[in-house]
Design a protein around this nucleic acid. Structure first.
Lengths: 255, 255
DNA sequence: CAGCATAGTCTGGGATCCCAGACAGTTGAC
DNA sequence: GTCAACTGTCTGGGATCCCAGACTATGCTG
């Protein structure tokens, strides 16, 4: 039992408004099973702090700009990086190749972390440096994350006119093509990208889903396949370790 | 004085973590002037709800994925649309041209509302339909919003490789070119776009800044300039009304 | 226009939450 | 290895917050 029920109710209001959209006070009180007067008191505090806005014309309440601000702040001060870094360092050593942590940002992925095994830590030929953004549709990390979204969410995310820009001319160039690829990758549980970002390199990516079912990024490994007789099989072989790393990160996020 | 101090403190913790980044519990207690034990109780509730994550290795606390979720939910259930719609309907009638409400979304603008005067309400030639996204650097709305950001924020937002994609080959194509344009537009208090989106059309845009100094979107008006002897002066003449509409929306958001 | 349902505000007292401070554990400096 | 500073947990009681419910205001329907 929470030691601060007012705090629990306050956060419950934020979550309920996030899930349901604009709502009346009576509906919010019912959803959280708290007295109407308490609900109005909490809504008043939330409104003063900018987390909620009152819509008088509709007699409903909705999330306010402070909710957006802390959402953006979360992206800026990403806890995943602190929690994920040791996991990725270990993964890079184990697989002997460069690994990344990425987040979905609209129709793009942004690379948050990049670790290489000590034996190869020299100037990287890979373009996927930290901070770089690439179209989600043509990256293993991006597609791993898109695969966790509903069809409607994918359509919304990919509505940008620049969503299907391709560096190498490869990869899906329409929503229907992307859907086919995602269907296949949902089934296999990982995304595979072969030369869509950089010729001669292939990647596999696995989404990070925390214990509450929330998408929290993706882990990927990139392999130089030219000269490798096993071809794509050599990168696919790393899927179990990548998945294990994604699950470790998810577990740490849920603590 | 707040009637629910626990709620006030809870939201204060979220805001402080958003502003300062990962922090120790002692620092948070000091920032909010609340007892250490109360701070730990509130952090426990916030962590259970996913709004905060504990970083044991650093002995610090940081925002968690629920903060991001309600930030994204805010974008989905935008209160601005409900509050802004009557303001934009009135503005469209008054200026006699199409007007828009837009939000910044990474390096792009997304059009949230589009209103035209009744006398012209036929199939629009304008591409700026609701839901459409366009590069911020080449739109009046986008530049009006970018002009409110710091140089560092502009660099971060515009780091996407697709940020400077141009439909008509006009408009700034580099960060330094954009900075020059933004400097000029900061001085004038509005953004002016002439044919960068669609030949023969010009737009002016003004950012919406609420009473707490938060960026909350932009309002713009678009005019067909071909055949108009006054040229750009005819669209610039609408800046006072656009600014007034932006201020009205800002005031409503702050209630 | 009347009636009804719901929104939003207000009040006072009993239930309980918040606080001060003690305590154990951890970390880093010397 | 010792010590200081800080982290994190726990406790009990007085201060105060939360609740039930009354009341006014508003909007919709017939």
């Amino acid at each position: 039992m929470s030691k601060v029920p007012a705090a629990t109710s306050t956060l419950g209001l934020l979550r309920t408004l996030a899930n349901r959209g604009p709502s009346t006070a009576t509906a919010l009180a019912a959803a959280l099973d708290i007295p109407r007067s308490t609900t109005y008191h909490l809504l008043s505090v939330l409104t003063d702090a900018g987390f909620v806005v009152h819509l008088p014309d509709e007699r409903r309440w909705t999330l306010g700009p402070s909710a957006f601000e802390i959402g953006m702040a979360y992206l800026r001060h990403d806890p995943r990086e602190a929690l994920a870094r040791p996991v990725l360092i270990e993964l890079a050593e184990r697989v002997g190749h460069t690994v990344h942590l990425a987040a979905l940002h609209g129709s793009e992925v942004v690379y948050l972390l990049k670790e290489s095994p000590r034996s190869t830590r020299r100037a990287s030929t890979l373009i996927t440096d930290v901070g770089v953004r690439l179209p989600a549709a043509t990256t293993a990390s991006g597609r791993a994350m898109l695969a966790t979204l509903s069809a409607e969410q994918v359509r919304a995310v990919m509505s940008s006119p620049t969503a299907f820009v391709s560096r190498t001319g490869r990869g899906p160039t329409s929503l229907s093509a992307l859907r086919s690829v995602l269907t296949r990758e949902r089934r296999s549980g990982y995304a595979l990208e072969d030369g869509e970002i950089l010729d001669g390199y292939a990647s596999v990516g696995v989404a990070i889903i925390d214990s509450a079912g929330r998408l929290a990024g993706a882990v990927s490994v990139t392999v130089h396949t030219i000269g490798d007789a096993a071809g794509l099989d050599s990168v696919i072989a790393y899927v179990p370790q990548v998945r294990e790393a994604a699950e470790t990160i998810a577990t740490r996020l849920s603590r």
